[in-house]
């Protein structure tokens, strides 16, 4: 199977070893734009599949030419409650160093 990752964080996806990447400069959680806009969604899906066709070397990246609309700059992408790791790090801030080092507790 041939694969491609549509990623807003290409530096991280490349580090993970993805064979092909379509990078998109969109807020996290909205990879195909806003709800209710089929043409927007289709343009990104189509561009991602075209990138899969075009990339001809392992680790290749196409930076998609989509800009997040300025009028949607304040879109709320925050989860309804803070992720549990945030509270854990506030309670035990010294563990942030472990997280940075990739030293994850069992």
């Amino acid at each position: 199977m041939s694969t491609i990752v549509l990623t807003p964080i290409p530096v991280f996806t490349a580090w993970a070893g993805a064979p092909r990447m379509a990078a998109i400069g969109y807020p996290l959680g909205l990879p195909f734009g806003m709800p209710g806009d089929p043409a927007w969604q289709m343009s990104i899906l189509r561009a991602t599949l075209q990138a899969l066709v075009d990339i001809d070397r392992p680790g290749g990246t196409v930076h998609l030419p989509f800009e997040w609309p300025a009028e949607l700059a304040e879109v709320d992408t925050e989860p309804p409650e803070p992720p549990p790791i945030v509270g854990a790090l506030i309670r035990r801030p010294w563990q942030f160093r472990r997280l940075l080092a990739g030293d994850i507790p069992e």
């Binding site: 694969t3 491609i4 549509l6 996290l28 990879p31 599949l49």
Partner: peptide, 13 residues
């Protein structure tokens, strides 16, 4: 593979 997939688009969020 059981559904003969050729291409996978992965979408992290």
């Amino acid at each position: 593979q059981s559904e003969d997939v050729d291409v996978v688009v992965l979408v992290p969020v």
